[in-house]
């Protein structure tokens, strides 16, 4: 996988743009195919590196510091309404989801 045989296709760009929720027109997709391939060419050198000596274990030298379970929210100096694009009765509003099975999260955001 990877290496010089990997080339980014137009479909790849469209797929990745969909994953990242970036709307791209056809021309932009075309130019990005070239840009990404030129960038990724330079990454091929990594496939030649001997990584046997590289530890993949997490660096646990500084373990996670934790806080006590005491309410102490970071205070907000402005109301949510001051920065939210759309709010009503304390809720953030978004366009109605085309599907809304209550527990189908992560699946319902798919293509409609």
């Amino acid at each position: 996988m990877g290496g010089s045989d990997v080339a980014v296709s137009e479909d790849d760009v469209r797929h990745v743009a969909a994953l990242a929720r970036l709307g791209l027109d056809g021309d932009r997709v075309q130019s990005l195919v070239g840009e990404l391939n030129r960038i990724l060419e330079h990454m091929d050198v990594l496939q030649q590196v001997d990584i046997r000596g590289a530890s993949l274990d997490p660096d646990a030298a500084h373990g996670l510091r934790m806080r006590e379970d005491v309410p102490n929210p970071i205070p907000l100096h402005r109301e949510r309404e001051a920065f939210a694009p759309a709010m009503r009765d304390g809720f953030f509003l978004v366009p109605r989801l085309a599907t809304h099975g209550t527990a189908a999260r992560g699946d319902d955001e798919g293509d409609e």
């Binding site: 509003l93 109605r96 809304h100």
Partner: peptide
């Protein structure tokens, strides 16, 4: 996500 509170939009809590 609350879908039945407001017409035409979903409400996020």
């Amino acid at each position: 996500s609350v879908h039945d509170r407001f017409a035409g939009v979903s409400a996020i809590d």
